[in-house]
Design a protein around this nucleic acid. Structure first.
Length: 426
DNA sequence: TCTGGGGTCCTAGGACCC
DNA sequence: TCTGGGGTCCTAGGACCC
């Protein structure tokens, strides 16, 4: 007989806000918010900040008054810090299960099917206590036979104090009351559009969705929606991904700290994004056959609007920053128009091949091997000494990038600090 | 003044082939 | 001029996730 799967979802509560608090105990009890890049909108809130009515996605300037009145601690997002703490959380989780799917920076699915434990719920509480003790981060945990139900259980555990952060569905014989507690738009896999469709058709809770007509669901929400319904009924339709598959596309893009109007300034940013995206691509041993460059004005601004993208089909798969740069410039030349206030550009790399299967082409430039070696060395140095210990001059001098985003409220880099290192330019 | 960044999957429809 | 089945590949668009 096939064993019932036992899938846990572990989720860090208010992750970015909690990270800021870990190294600054004075913030205990004080409301905290974390801002998006460019200090634009709120992307994370502590419980206290939520209680003040500050919403996810609120523009900072709109809630600034409320923030000042209530002595809210405000931080620019510090992804170096969050990434580092995330890695530590994940390595703790790996002690509790041989099969961990890192689902996002603050969430992981654990396969606990084979774990021997007389009291499964105690096991979950132990996971929670360990992360709290070792890292100072609060987490919630849901355990269920499918990923979608584990998400749902996790949500209930987080929202309802009486569960103390842990809900094991297997402790209950009838789950209807739990499914009824969750609005359909809060089910994993149901977004804004589908939620509206479902409400129009009298499907309001997770329980309604679980009992919905499956033919109708498939017709209106494709097989993806059908999988959600199956999973709500305890039938596994979304597998745990043990080995994260290599990315099929990699994008690097950012809004500027100030609007740009000149080609050279924009090109500097493009060069930076080519460097960032290709570095990620090399880290997964890929090379791309297609590169896209896109550019746009600020759609919220009442000024002439422009959006365009250019795709370059490369003559052979590439992954070196230096070999991609000329093509990026060509692409930008195709779409750049004078007379606009540009707010954002980006670089998208796609159509990958694995570098170990890359063919050496007769048409490769003769010095290509040397270039590849130089790139490898650069990546190694940057990995060791921190991002941009070495970088291409085309991306502009670090200290005077006009496009660099604003991060005026950045916390210190508690876990990594490279600022005393000498700078080398490539 | 001020509105994030980085991804995936699925489907429909068109081009093209036999 | 109208009319077929069946297959593949590609792209754009729409939905979703954190």
């Amino acid at each position: 007989m096939k064993k019932t799967n036992k899938i846990a979802l572990v989720d860090c509560n208010n992750f970015y806000a909690s990270c800021e608090r870990v190294f600054n105990p004075k913030l205990n009890g004080r409301p905290i918010v974390v801002l998006s890049n460019n200090d634009g909108v709120i992307i994370a809130r502590s419980d206290e900040a939520k209680q003040l009515g500050i919403k996810m996605g609120d523009p900072y300037f709109k809630v600034e008054k409320l923030i000042k009145q209530n002595n809210v601690a405000v931080f620019s997002s510090n992804y170096t810090l969050y990434g580092d703490l995330s890695a530590r959380v994940m390595s703790v989780l790996e002690k509790f299960s041989p099969e961990v799917e890192i689902y996002s920076i603050d969430e992981a699915f654990l396969n606990l099917t084979g774990i021997e434990s007389s009291n499964q719920t105690e096991y979950l509480r132990n996971i929670r206590a360990t992360i709290k003790k070792w890292l100072g981060l609060p987490v919630s945990i849901g355990l269920a036979p499918t990923k979608t139900l584990a998400k749902l259980a996790n949500r209930i555990a987080k929202k309802n104090k009486e569960f103390d952060g842990v809900l094991n569905l297997f402790d209950y014989s009838n789950w209807d009351k739990f499914l009824e507690m969750v609005e359909v738009e809060d089910v994993w896999g149901v977004g804004r559009q589908y939620a509206a469709l479902l409400h129009r058709n009298n499907i309001h809770t997770a329980l309604d969705l679980a009992r919905a007509n499956q033919k109708w669901i498939k017709k209106r929400m494709t097989v993806v929606g059908l999988r959600t319904v199956l999973e709500l009924n305890g039938i596994s339709a979304i597998d745990l991904e043990h080995q994260p598959p290599a990315k099929k596309s990699i994008v690097s893009s950012r809004s500027f700290g100030e609007y740009l109007t000149k080609f050279d300034d924009v090109m500097e940013a493009v060069a930076f994004f080519v460097a960032r995206a290709s570095e990620k691509m090399r880290a997964q041993s890929s090379a791309c056959r297609i590169m896209q460059v896109f550019i746009r004005t600020n759609p919220f601004k009442n000024s002439p609007q422009y959006y365009n993208a250019a795709e370059v089909h490369l003559p052979y798969p590439m992954n070196g920053t230096n070999e991609l740069l000329p093509y990026a410039k060509q692409a930008l030349q195709k779409i750049f128009r004078m007379g606009y206030y540009y707010q954002k550009v980006g670089v998208l790399l796609m159509d990958f091949v694995q570098t170990n299967t890359m063919m050496v082409s007769l048409f490769d430039p003769p010095n290509r091997i040397n270039q590849i070696k130089a790139t490898e060395i650069m990546d190694q140095i940057n990995k060791k000494y921190g991002r941009e210990a070495i970088y291409f001059a085309a991306a502009g001098m670090k200290e005077r990038r006009r496009w660099q985003m604003k991060r005026q409220l950045l916390s210190q880099h508690f876990t990594t600090n490279w600022k005393d290192l000498p700078e080398v330019k490539a």
